[in-house]
Design a protein around this nucleic acid. Structure first.
Lengths: 128, 128
DNA sequence: AATACAATACTACACATGTAGTCCAAAGTT
DNA sequence: AACTTTGGACTACATGTGTAGTATTGTATT
């Protein structure tokens, strides 16, 4: 039997941790704290708390090979992005990517350049 | 002096109320409850609570002309969508629409038709 | 070995959110 | 007029989140 993996809800602050671990893993808490030092001003204690919560949610796993625990993602970045995107589109744009893009073009005033770039991305020529 | 309007944070459930009021306003709480009956299964009490919270956040206003209060948005749909979109892009895609679209194309497997439609939208031919 | 430091575990605490329930007063119903 | 219903104010309560602090214990240092 397979257990279907639920994508846990990852809060704003927790996303920062996940990003670090998706970038490189496994990492010890100290390493995570180091990496985040450049991006946030959280106390190490706060980061420890966030890590524990992610472990509890089973978004990341821990292993203890040496005497230090290290942590690694249990969910992929793609899964999380996809889940997050769907819930955002549902909440704000009735689930419609079209509506999202249309509004974005209208309200955020994309430049012609950006529009061309996006069209290229849509065509799969996604260098830029 | 102008007071700069802060866009308050609007929770998932509160968005449902806002959508109703953006659609048509002012409405009394009873009318809001009616409108939401078709979409949710919330108790009227729950809806009253959500309405009060939105008033407190100054996302909606209230006026009492007849004996019943009626409610109306104080923030526009565009403002809220824009705020929400930015915070989503920041959290998940480092603020980059390009990255978002690229990932979406890759992971959500858009059909050729959808891609063409999006390109039309980007070009401003947004009937469809 | 004793001490200091640091990793992990456990606790704290206010505010947000989902989801209602209670109480009171005004309005409509019999 | 008494009774019922309902809007609105206030209260409730578990869980999530941001943001740490304390306690314990094993390791590193002198």
């Amino acid at each position: 039997m397979f257990t279907i993996k639920e994508i846990p809800k990852i809060s704003e602050a927790e996303w920062s941790i996940m990003k670090v671990l998706w970038e490189k893993s496994p990492l010890t808490s100290t390493e995570i704290i180091q990496a985040l030092k450049e991006v946030t001003s959280w106390s190490p204690k706060t980061i420890h708390t966030l890590i524990s919560r992610l472990v509890k949610k089973e978004a990341i796993g821990e292993k203890k090979e040496s005497r230090l625990k290290s942590f690694f993602p249990l969910v992929t970045e793609e899964e999380c992005k996809s889940t997050e995107t769907k819930s955002f589109l549902k909440k704000v744009y009735s689930g419609s990517l079209q509506m999202f893009i249309a509004n974005f073009v209208k309200d955020e005033k994309l430049s012609q350049n950006e529009i061309e770039e996006l069209k290229d991305i849509l065509d799969g020529k996604k260098d830029s």
